[in-house]
Design a protein around this nucleic acid. Structure first.
Length: 861
RNA sequence: GCCCGAGUGGCGGAAUUGGUAGACGCGUCGGACUUAAAAUCCGAUUGGUAUCUAAAUGCCAGUGCCGGUUCGAGUCCGGCCUCGGGUACCA
């Protein structure tokens, strides 16, 4: 072997790492620990795409870097393997989801190994393994015991034609995505988890986490805590009250009407005979609409008067009660007091139906809008008049409490978590129903395994597929021997991914989900890398379970993921698109004026840049230049396997990191991989003689020169700092600078080469191991000591000063190191610089700026 | 609509606390090596402009747009524009 052949050295070292269990996690706890985690992959049938290795390479670099810095590193991987695609495939082809899943996992595992990631493969977990989901079920029992899991009738999307329940995204315009059959809302018995009970703690816990602010904000908004008051309005002529929640109790004197959601219980009771038909029709119409439709068709507000009136408790006014679907049944009490003067939605509704509008907060003089929602003094509000919004809120709440008409209240957008799915390929609930009551099966009877089946379709009456496994469903209560029926719903895919990071700490532990000693050592996760699409759901659900487990004494930390980073999406290659109508080209800036334009993909050679836009070469016709999200339908998906075949895994890893900052969205460009590949070739040839295959003659035991040490230590400093900052792209460029410099040397002392190879090894581990061994080292480079930089070598003999005149650089001077901070010396040298002198001669020097070791600026007038 | 994030060469991107804008890489052009090609190596590469030409050295403009602060602004402040992402009647 002589030239750089990644295909040979990469499989060689992957084999070596496997055989020697190089990356097996240390059993001892006597070093500082570092837990670096990738988000749990779903092993899909299409295999890895280039987005996966982006985050995985970043974490692998950190894992390898920390090992070399003498940390015990936990760097595991596993499979979030339950889920709908394998089940749908089973319905279509009869292949058992277990077989599909196993096949997909094997493919993923091979692909990850081909990339040379340093996972501890002995800790691999799989959510579909009964030994794993035993503990998922165990955690569910804890939730059940604590009263955090309950059954409820929840409206779901039921499609009678298909005989199945559909997820929200499977329903389009009230019809099934598949087949276009009508879908109705149907209440069904479902398991629900009381995540709302943890709302405040989930909110508070965010404060101390090192997460992107935007992600924390999304979680806060999702939880949506708002402070206000519950207020009761009596209904004129009925012995009933309407309770509303409002964040603006201070505006109560402007409450000129009330609105009930169409589903509100009181609607039927209070509607007058005259209005009955209209109200019922409206309710039916609302029921037919899906949630999506209701919000999508929100341009125009709709509603009907019930004929009934309520009494405003603050001033005794009679106000009409309406029904409208802009009030949601599921938030607050499903009823509002409408205050058009201070609420845009209410204003719009009041305007349309000609209802009274009273301002109760004085808008600023220049205000010309409709509803005024800002700060101001209360008006038209009797005893609140003159108060600011906050004072008025406090005062009216006191008043309402005194008069037993209301009280301070808190509301959350967060709802309880619908936790059951009508599917086969998920964790069975460890629950049996005895005499119609749910009962846990008891820890000793875990796991409750999935029954063997070959028909995965739901039953005709909408029961989940598991209902068909009658032998499995019909069982007896192990305690009493009474006949019992097993729960036939399964858990959603989120369940397994809510706690997998704990299982990695002790995958073999038999007495609980996690060994307390291992939990105590490894948790929390120090670095968690994954896509921003999981900002809310996965991360919120996992935090919820973690807090429950904390309360149960199972884990020792309050939060699971101390630091979180989202890798940015990798887009497809940049595409140029021209637009044609017949044979005529249409400029992209006016394409909206035409229908049915033909899109034509153009080659890079066919276009050029003109001003801020790209045009067809030699014309003024603009084209669109854009990188799109990778998708099968667009045909711009890059397969990592092809890149590895062509360039090797080291180049693939290097390119993914070199493209740009980790967290940024970046377009892929296969030809750019050439750059990092050539870099690795240069590293190779610096050390290996391509003709002989031996070490180059320039590789020597000689003492390194001062210049060589400077080049090396600049590189060490930059690479070390950049890894700490996750600036992998600039770390790689620093190593390129080193190579460009080192290639000019006649001699390459090992004392320089070896530290450099260490710097390279977390990024490109295969070539680094190979060169490390060729330089005469026996042990793997994976645990070699990370090089330390020595400030002493970084100092150069001279200091360069750019000289500015009026802020513009007019020359530069080099001064000896010992004079570098000598203001007078530097300034006199600066003024003597030839080009600078010309400017000084033209005017009067009025000011001298001297920034030591940086810059000189002379102000001339 | 609201909330985030981002606008820098032909392209991806660099640029500590404000201190030489364009590092590094791709592409392009030129050269070396070669019978030739590939590979490799060397040089040039923001635009405009001046000194007869070249080399070399200057000058002017330039980090989405307009304005401000400062000796000095890609970086800070005010006002816009465009693109990307999230969210959607949550009272």
């Amino acid at each position: 072997m002589s030239s750089y052949k990644p295909e040979e050295i990469e499989s060689k070292w992957q084999e070596y790492w496997k055989k020697n269990k190089t990356f097996k996690t240390a059993e001892n706890h006597d070093k500082p620990k570092y837990y670096v985690l990738d988000m749990f992959p779903y092993p899909s049938g299409s295999g890895l795409h280039v987005g996966h290795p982006e985050g995985y390479t970043a974490t692998d670099i950190l894992a390898r870097y920390k090992r070399m810095n003498d940390f015990n590193v936990l760097h595991p991987i596993g499979w979030d393997a339950f889920g709908l695609p394998a089940e749908q495939y089973a319905v279509k082809t009869g292949t058992h989801p277990r077989d599909t899943t196993e096949k997909n996992i094997n493919r993923f595992r091979e692909q990850l190994k081909d990339l040379g990631f340093s996972y501890d493969w002995d800790r691999e977990v799989n959510t579909t393994d009964p030994d794993y989901y035993k503990w998922t079920q165990w955690i569910f029992l804890k939730l059940f015991d604590k009263g955090l899991a309950y059954e409820d009738d929840v409206p779901v999307n039921w499609c009678p034609e298909l005989g199945t329940v559909l997820a929200n995204e499977e329903v389009i315009d009230g019809k099934s995505e598949v087949g276009g059959h009508p879908v109705v809302k149907k209440p069904m018995r479902q398991w629900v988890l009381k995540i709302t009970e943890y709302a405040d703690r989930l909110l508070e816990g965010l404060d101390d986490l090192d997460w992107p602010e935007s992600t924390k904000k999304m979680q806060r908004d999702w939880i949506g805590k708002s402070m206000g008051a519950d207020i009761d309005f009596e209904i004129d002529g009925h012995n009933e009250e309407i309770r509303v929640f409002t964040t603006r109790p201070d505006t109560i004197f402007g409450a000129t009407y009330m609105v009930l959601a169409p589903e509100h219980d009181l609607v039927d009771k209070i509607t007058t005979e005259d209005q009955k038909d209209a109200v019922e029709e409206y309710q039916e119409e609302a029921a037919r609409k899906s949630d999506l439709e209701r919000t999508e068709l929100s341009d125009e507000k709709t509603g009907v008067f019930t004929g009934a009136y309520a009494i405003n408790p603050a001033n005794g006014e009679r106000v009409p009660i309406w029904v409208a679907d802009y009030v949601l049944a599921t938030y607050g009490t499903g009823a509002i007091m409408a205050v058009p003067g201070q609420d845009e939605r209410d204003w719009e509704f009041a305007e349309k139906f000609d209802l009274d509008i009273i301002r109760t907060v004085e808008p600023p003089e220049d205000f010309d809008g409709k509803a005024y929602t800002g700060e101001g003094k209360a008006i038209n509000s009797e005893f609140l008049n003159g108060l600011g919004v906050e004072e008025a809120k406090e005062k009216i709440i006191d008043w309402l409490e005194e008069h037993s008409a209301g009280k301070k209240a808190v509301n959350y957008k967060l709802r309880d978590w619908l936790f059951s799915r009508q599917r086969y390929w998920g964790e069975p609930f460890p629950i049996i129903h005895v005499d119609g009551e749910p009962k846990p099966v008891g820890e000793d009877n875990l796991p409750v395994t999935l029954p063997e089946m070959d028909d995965f379709e739901p039953t005709d009456d909408g029961n989940p597929p598991l209902a068909k496994a009658t032998d499995w469903v019909n069982t007896e209560d192990p305690e009493t021997g009474k006949p019992a029926k097993r729960e036939t719903n399964t858990m959603p895919q989120w369940a397994g991914s809510c706690w997998y990071y704990l299982r990695y700490c002790s995958p073999e532990f038999q007495d609980g989900p996690v060994d307390p000693e291992e939990d105590n050592y490894w948790m929390p996760v120090d670095m968690y890398v994954g896509g921003a699409e999981h900002s809310v759901l996965h991360l919120l659900y996992a935090r919820f379970w973690h807090k429950v487990l904390y309360d149960c004494g199972v884990v020792s930390t309050k939060e699971p993921f101390q630091r979180l980073v989202h890798q940015g999406m990798i887009l497809g290659e940049m595409e140029f698109t021209g637009y044609q109508k017949g044979d005529d080209w249409i400029s992209a800036n006016i394409k909206e004026d035409y229908d049915n334009l033909e899109r034509v993909k153009l080659d890079e050679e066919q276009v050029e840049k003109k001003g801020d836009d790209f045009v067809i070469k030699g014309t003024e016709i603009r084209v669109d230049a854009k990188a799109h999200k990778m998708s099968k339908s667009r045909g711009n998906v890059v397969n990592p396997d092809d890149i590895i075949d062509q360039y090797g895994a080291d180049s693939m890893r290097l390119y993914e990191m070199f493209m740009g900052p980790l967290e940024q969205v970046k377009p892929w460009s296969t030809k750019d991989v050439d750059g990092v590949y050539r870099f690795l070739g240069r590293v190779w040839r610096m050390i290996i003689n391509e003709e002989s295959g031996e070490l180059n003659e320039s590789v020597s035991e000689a003492e390194p020169s001062r210049d060589q040490l400077k080049t090396l230590h600049e590189c060490i400093q930059k690479v070390t700092n950049d890894i700490e900052d996750l600036s992998f792209n600039t770390a790689i460029s620093a190593m390129m600078i080193f190579i460009n410099e080192a290639n000019k040397w006649d001699e390459h002392p090992k004392e320089i080469l070896e530290p450099f190879i260490k710097l390279l090894s977390p990024f490109a581990p295969h070539i680094s191991e190979e060169l490390w061994h060729r330089l005469g080292n026996e042990e793997t480079i994976a645990y070699a000591d990370w090089p330390e930089f020595n400030e002493e070598y970084l100092i150069s003999d001279t200091q360069l000063y750019p000289i500015q005149v009026n802020g513009k650089v007019r020359g530069e001077i080099n001064v000896p190191r010992e004079k570098a901070k000598d203001k007078e010396y530097v300034l006199s040298e600066a003024k003597a610089e030839e080009n600078v002198k010309r400017y000084l001669d033209e005017g009067n020097l009025v000011k001298e700026i001297f920034v030591p070791e940086q810059i000189v600026n002379l102000v001339v007038k």
